[in-house]
Lab assay of single mutants.
Amino acid sequence: KAKLLVLLYAFVATDADTICIGYHANNSTDTVDTILEKNVAVTHSVNLLEDSHNGKLCKLKGIAPLQLGKCNITGWLLGNPECDSLLPARSWSYIVETPNSENGACYPGDLIDYEELREQLSSVSSLERFEIFPKESSWPNHTFNGVTVSCSHRGKSSFYRNLLWLTKKGDSYPKLTNSYVNNKGKEVLVLWGVHHPSSSDEQQSLYSNGNAYVSVASSNYNRRFTPEIAARPKVRDQHGRMNYYWTLLEPGDTIIFEATGNLIAPWYAFALSRGFESGIITSNASMHECNTKCQTPQGAINSNLPFQNIHPVTIGECPKYVRSTKLRMVTGLRNIPSIQYRGLFGAIAGFIEGGWTGMIDGWYGYHHQNEQGSGYAADQKSTQNAINGITNKVNSVIEKMNTQFTAVGKEFNNLEKRMENLNKKVDDGFLDIWTYNAELLVLLENERTLDFHDLNVKNLYEKVKSQLKNNAKEIGNGCFEFYHKCDNECMESVRNGTYDYPKYSEESKLNR
């Protein structure tokens, strides 16, 4: 008799109507990190870190770059004969040098303040090359056809396309004075040089004057150069050297050249137009028929994500570079809930034993079982409120962090190594801060989002509990077992918050 009662009780308990509160689960393989956990499985997430590029040089917003090819900045601007293909260059979106560009200054020497000139050019998007001192009329008392084997072109001695090597005419090199007034309405880049012979005999042979000088002056520039005559090792078949100089001439300003020898005179100059998204990159990537809004030396990035880990040097509207390998923000729920887990921000989770793959029309909802059958029903209101809140948060985070910009490298010469090392340390410090901030932001927001979901499920549970009161009992896994019969209409009233407690209280009292 006792065995019969136990079996009867078990049958009745199993047959009781139930309603459970749960949440969506799926077959997603997404994982995120939080402050407290690593690799948390979630139903949905968004990636904030771009880690792919196309490996190509592309047009930037429809404008092609200027590819210097086998030449570098120095060779292009001075007019190395091997860089003749660059003479027609007028406009570009950015400038590309190759790491091993070999054609710079063909006659050995240095372009002074080269690093600063590169910085200036990094904001130039177009130029006009014009004859600042016409070759045939500007130097009537001097020979202007100086050439050298060091600047050979097609097997013949030649010289820079933008400079003139002035030497004596006959047996004399009379003092020369020439000036140019900038009437271009924009900055003009003027380049010139000073020749330093290897011996007094060479000085006399070329310029006749043993104590020659070169003077260059404008409103913002004033220097006097004296040739340094000295024996030097042979470089590119030359014992002599040429140093090259430049200045930016403001609109309306005048530049005056005065010399008694050794002047490498300007022939062509450049009127410059600035462009905020221009820059110089060093890259071996090849040019393709493609378009982008962000270019790196590795390749083009076409992404609206706020961060990238491809390269710190970028041109155009680019994500911020960070050292992170993963920045994924959760938008959905835990896919593998932890039992009795309390989140960092106070939300209680884990009283549900598992997510439901059968509930596909919402994030949170119900599963019921009664004599009429069983089924899932999503709670659309709480789901939609959660979707709206999380979507707004993700968009806000992306908008705040998605300050796209150009980031170019800084140039230092060989004598500025300590400054370069200090600059690298400062840049590394800023990069570490950006990386830390980005990672911390994602970790915190992921923790908040998961706790937010847990709290929403808990609130749904409490909503049902407050309606049923003692007409049902909690069975410990997020479910309630009714003390009365609850048909589909009754189940719907529980879900929509209109459950009639008094209607079922007498039946429940008897069954309790």
Score class of each variant (00 low, 15 high):
E97P: 00
A230M: 08
V6C: 13
Q67W: 11
Y245E: 07
Q203L: 02
E131V: 13
Q120N: 10
S198Q: 10
K3W: 12
S45E: 05
R118I: 12
S200C: 03
C20E: 01
L87F: 07
L36Q: 09
K38L: 04
A269E: 02
S125A: 10
R274Y: 12
N39A: 10
N54T: 12
E115I: 01
K135N: 03
T148G: 00
F276K: 12
A105D: 01
A217L: 12
W92F: 15
S199N: 12
S158Q: 14
N162Y: 05
P134V: 07
N26M: 03
Y213V: 07
V235D: 11
L4M: 07
R223A: 14
R274S: 10
E119V: 03
G275D: 14
D253I: 00
S179I: 10
S215Y: 04
G279N: 13
L248Y: 00
S137I: 13
V124C: 11
V181G: 04
E128C: 02
E250M: 02
E82M: 13
Y173P: 00
V194R: 00
A25V: 15
R223H: 15
L36V: 00
T167Q: 14
T167H: 08
M242E: 11
H153L: 06
E50A: 15
T254Y: 09
L117F: 11
I95L: 14
Y107L: 06
A25E: 00
S198W: 11
S157N: 06
I21W: 02
H196F: 13
K169A: 13
S91G: 12
A89Y: 10
L121R: 01
I264H: 05
L86A: 09
P99E: 13
M242R: 03
N222L: 13
S215L: 10
Q203P: 01
E116V: 01
D201G: 07
N72V: 01
I63S: 04
Y245V: 01
Y23N: 01
V216L: 08
A10T: 13
G55A: 09
D113R: 02
A230V: 15
V188G: 07
Q67K: 07
Y160R: 00
S200D: 13
G261V: 02
R129W: 06
A265G: 05
V42F: 07
P88W: 00
G210D: 14
S198H: 10
E128H: 13
A13P: 09
L5V: 03
I229W: 00
S205Y: 11
A41F: 14
T18Q: 15
S179E: 14
N262W: 07
E102V: 13
P266F: 11
G252A: 09
P81N: 06
S158D: 13
I95Y: 02
F270R: 00
L272R: 01
I229R: 06
K61H: 15
K1W: 03
F144Q: 08
V149K: 04
G275T: 12
T247L: 11
A41N: 03
N54S: 14
Y221W: 13
L60D: 02
S205L: 12
S93G: 15
